[in-house]
Design a binder for these strands. Structure first.
Length: 314
DNA sequence: AAGACGAAAGTGGTTGA
DNA sequence: TCAACAACTTTCGTCTT
């Protein structure tokens, strides 16, 4: 068994700086051709090598069969998918009994092997957490890279013993929330809480706790990040989307976004853009997909209109 | 009938003593 | 730890299309 490979997957340090948190401790993940910031987990450079399945798979069995060569390494499997098993029989590959020195060596190997595997509680913890991450991700249609970041964060949390006193589900949800924000594809806490096995309050508490303890730098939520999702849900054209971003930029310059909920601001921008570009959606509909109330959309919309002197004829 | 609008009261989280 | 506070929500009545 290749211990080196299992324990030191991230072996090469790389001389670069993370654009997100300025940290210069960059790791080179040669297996996947990526540069990763050790601080925040940001993938700095990806050579876009496809580790995914060769064909579409329609059920789990097909999926299992249709992957490329071997098991891809992933953070979402509790032992990173690289574990090896050593048989209990003292026989070699051909079935001959092992003797003397060889036999003693196998005993030693088996001992280490046992120590590294699922036997301990940590691994069971991870297995449960990752299946929970899987479930939530598929519910919300979350891309794989974000899920990997979530798994990475969760793994760190376990290493630092931060799960103690909190439920696994709680911390897993928090890790997912953190990952989503890190990857600038934010979802609201409400969205997570809806499908998670923990309440919004608990998730929020755990989230604050782990990013604090792990020193993860999370960029502030930029309302722009919500625009594309809101527009897509409303089936608005790209033109509207660009207009909404333009409006949002101006609104930010006027200080209309600080202290305001990013969802509400984004929703208002999309609403105004939809009116200007003649693809009007109702306040109610915009509010619904943005997960804020109609009233909030209205308040933001009025603020923006008066500040920017926008004349929106209805 | 549906949407837009605004007033008023309620809610949960942050802040500062 | 508690009260003040701002942002946001809920609810509801009115007006417009």
């Amino acid at each position: 068994m290749d211990l080196q490979r299992v324990t030191h997957h991230f072996n090469n340090e790389f001389n670069a700086k993370c654009s997100e948190c300025g940290n210069s401790h960059i790791l080179k993940d040669s297996e996947r051709g990526e540069l990763i910031c050790s601080q925040c987990g940001l993938v700095i450079e990806s050579k876009l090598m496809d580790h995914g399945p060769e064909w579409r798979a329609f059920d789990f069995e097909q999926k299992e069969k249709r992957v490329r060569v071997g098991a891809p390494m992933t953070y979402t499997i509790h032992d990173k998918g690289l574990s090896t098993m050593i048989d209990w029989r003292n026989q070699d590959y051909a079935g001959k009994n092992l003797r003397g020195k060889n036999r003693a060596q196998i005993y030693r190997l088996r001992k280490w092997n046992r120590r590294m595997r699922v036997s301990d509680a940590t691994e069971r913890n991870l297995a449960l957490a990752f299946s929970e991450l899987d479930r939530m991700s598929s519910h919300l249609g979350i891309p794989k890279n974000v899920k990997e970041v979530a798994a990475f964060i969760y793994r760190k949390a376990v290493e630092k013993r931060l799960v103690r006193g909190r439920s696994i589900e709680e911390v897993a949800s928090a890790a997912l929330y953190a990952a989503l924000r890190q990857c600038r594809t934010p979802r609201t806490l409400d969205e997570i809480a809806e499908i998670a096995k923990a309440s919004k309050k608990e998730i929020g508490r755990s989230y604050r706790f782990i990013i604090n303890k792990l020193n993860i730098q999370i960029p502030n939520v930029d309302p722009v990040d919500y625009i594309s999702r809101i527009s897509q849900d409303l089936e608005l054209s790209t033109k509207v989307q660009l207009k909404a971003i333009e409006i949002l930029k101006k609104a930010t310059d006027f200080g209309l976004t600080s202290g305001r909920g990013p969802c509400g601001v984004a929703a208002a921008a999309v609403y105004i853009a939809s009116v200007i570009m003649n693809e009007k959606k109702t306040q109610t509909k915009v509010a619904k997909v943005a997960r804020v109330t109609e009233v909030t959309v209205r308040n933001r919309y009025k603020e923006i209109c008066t500040e920017l002197n926008l004349d929106v004829s209805l």
